[in-house]
Design a protein around this nucleic acid. Sequence first.
RNA 1: GGUGGGAUAUCCAAGUGGCUAAAGGAAGCAGACUGUAAAUCUGUCGAGGUUUCUCUUCGAGCGUUCGAAUCGCUCUCCCACCA
Length: 308
Amino acid sequence: MQDLFILTGYTATGKTELSLEIAEQMEAEIVSCDSLLVYKNLDIGTAKPIQRDLDRIKHHCINLVNPEENFDVSSYIEAARCAIGDIHSREKNALVVGGSGFYLKSFFYSVVDDVKITAEAENFVHNSLNFNGIGALVDKLLELNNGQVDIDLKNPRRVISALKRCLSTGKTLAEMHENFAQRKCKFDGFNRRTVLLTRDGDDLKQRVQWRIESMIAGSLIDEVRSLIDRGQFNGSNKNAIGYRETIRWLQANTTIDALMREIYSNTLKFIKKQKTWFKKQIPIDGIVNLSPISPKAAKELIMDVFRS
RNA sequence: GGUGGGAUAUCCAAGUGGCUAAAGGAAGCAGACUGUAAAUCUGUCGAGGUUUCUCUUCGAGCGUUCGAAUCGCUCUCCCACCA
């Protein structure tokens, strides 16, 4: 069975730096697991590895599509599968690195099925939402499922998606759920070893602060401006932390300081969400707290988990 | 010195006699998550008590009232305007 090494951790823990070292040591190539690094031109706000790093270690799943194009987990799974196959065919190790929880989950569980949303379903939901609001969608969904629904009915996104799926397949959510449970994860054939990187609270906050300062100094604002000018944001990445605040800031009239504070607090909120996610959604083999130890020691600990 | 406005829980901010432990927002804390996931959504959010119980709150004190964050008086502080 082939190995798949996975290195994850909260934003700003220092995954990128460490991953380069580790990849070098274990003759690996890096498969990025980041929902935003897949976009070209989103460089500064995503803290994308710089060219020198990309030259040093071959990276996959970065700069796959233009920012205005759509991308989602299923596209990611395909891209990652190809990349890993390619790496292994060249007798190298694959090191998955990234902090996008949902994308990461796809390495362990089936996370999507192949239900295709029909144009009719799409239209129906679109129109119904426009004319009758979300309540009508909930009613319709309940009606199609005999009142038995196991999704969060208060979450419009879930309701919309569930209804589209029911309308497209003619099946109830329960039936689809059953079907879904049978599906195998695309990466079940690999021996997966996962390390979660963490840092102490204050240390991590300090690093977040530094990171934001360097983004601003590295002209995040120009990057955002040029993406706007070229109409390159899509519905997803325009809401990415750092980008959405800057987009708003460009229209508002506040200080750079206020912008930085906002990005800071939203980043901390995001880290909090990552913590919740990693607690239950991903099987972790080892946790390495980077705060009290040297990078060298950290590398050893990570390698220990990978080898165990 | 004069006049007017204000002081509400961690912060911002409604409330102008009982239905008020006190709207709403933010922050915080906890959580969900099967196709935008750095997204979307939920709960909690004065202090205790393991159910709708008790205690302490609306600048401070006194008072009116069956009952006050809400009315009156005095004081403290802040803001604006006039001097």
